[in-house]
Design a protein around this nucleic acid. Structure first.
Lengths: 151, 151
DNA sequence: CGAAGGTATTTCGCATGCGAAGTGACGATG
DNA sequence: CATCGTCACTTCGCATGCGAAATACCTTCG
C-alpha cells in the first residue's frame, strides 16, 4: 500500500491482470459436459473461441480460425489438435487444395456451444455491470487501438 | 466481412487479443542482453514484472511477488525458478521463517532493468498515443473493475 | 511436549502460446 | 515437365499459467 502513485496507470499490467482473471473465470466455470461429467471442465477460453467461430463459419480453415482468434499458426494448430482429441472438432483435408484443412464441429462440439454461449453471456454481464455504454465503447475502442497499433 | 454486427463489443475477445499483442511485442522486443547477446531476447512480460517489483521491493518474498503479479503461487514459483536459472534473481531462505523464500536481483537482473524500463516506457507511449487522459482513466477503471469483480 | 492445524512454496500434469524449422502441396517459370 | 518459390499447416522446444497434491515449516492447544 505504499506505492499507489505509479507514474502511468500501468495499462500493460492492468490489461494482463484482467485477461488472466477472465481466463481463470472461464476455465473454472468450465462450460463443459464435454468428456468427463465428474470433473466438470473441459473447455478453456481459446477453445470456446474456436467453437463460437465454427458455429458462425462452418468449414472454416485453420488459417481462418488463426486469423479470427489473432493467434499464431502454431498455437492454433496445437489448440485444434487438442480439440480434435477431445472430440470437439473434426479436421478434414480440403479436396481442392490438399494443403488446407477444413474444420467442423462434432456433435459434442455443437452440444458444448450452449454452455459456452451461456458462460460468455454471464461473463459479459459481469464485465459490463455498472459501466455505461459510453465507457464500454471507449474501452472497446482502446482495445482495438492496441491490437491495431502494436507490430 | 459478413458479421460485423456482433451483439456486444465482445470485450472478452478484445481484451484477450490486446493482451496477447502486448505479450508478443514485449517478447519480440526482448529487452535482454541477459544471456546470449546474439539472439536478443531473454525476458518476457512476466519476468519483466518480477524485475520491476523487486527493484521497488527488495527482499520481497515469493508470496509478495505472487500477489503483486496477480499470479498463482504455482505460476510464480515456476517463473522464479526459470529466472533463477537465467541468473536474473536469487532465492534465499528466510532465516526467521524457513518456509518463506526471499528474492533479490542478481547483477544481471539489475542490469536488465534499464532495458525493461525503456521497453515498458516505449510500449506505454504506443498504447496511450492518441488517446485522451480521460479515456485512459476510463479504460484503467474498467480493467480494475474486471480484476475486482470476477471471483 | 506433541499432535493438529495452518502457512509458504514447490512439484506435477496439463493447457496455452510463440518462434523456428520442418513437411507436403500448389503454381509459375524456364 | 523439372525446379523453384510460396503457401498451409504441423512439429519441436520452450515459456507461461493453473489447480491439485505434496513438502517443509511454523503455531497452537491440550
Amino acid at each position: 500500500m505504499t506505492d499507489d502513485r505509479q507514474r502511468p496507470p500501468r495499462l500493460v499490467f492492468l490489461t494482463t491482470a484482467a485477461e488472466r482473471q477472465m481466463r481463470r473465470w472461464i476455465a473454472r466455470r468450465g462450460a463443459g459436459p464435454t468428456s468427463v461429467p465428474g470433473n466438470g471442465h473441459g473447455i478453456g477460453a481459446p477453445a470456446a473461441g474456436v467453437l463460437l467461430h465454427l458455429a458462425d463459419h462452418p468449414d472454416a480453415t485453420v488459417g481462418e480460425v488463426t486469423a479470427a482468434l489473432r493467434a499464431s499458426p502454431a498455437g492454433a494448430s496445437g489448440l485444434l489438435a487438442r480439440m480434435e482429441r477431445a472430440d470437439l472438432v473434426r479436421r478434414r483435408t480440403d479436396p481442392d487444395d490438399r494443403r488446407t484443412v477444413r474444420l467442423d464441429l462434432t456433435p459434442a462440439g455443437t452440444a458444448a456451444l450452449d454452455d459456452v454461449r451461456a458462460a460468455l453471456a454471464e461473463l459479459n454481464d459481469r464485465l459490463t455491470d455498472g459501466v455505461s455504454p459510453d465507457e464500454l465503447a471507449t474501452v472497446a475502442r482502446w482495445l482495438e487501438h492496441v491490437t491495431r497499433t502494436l507490430p
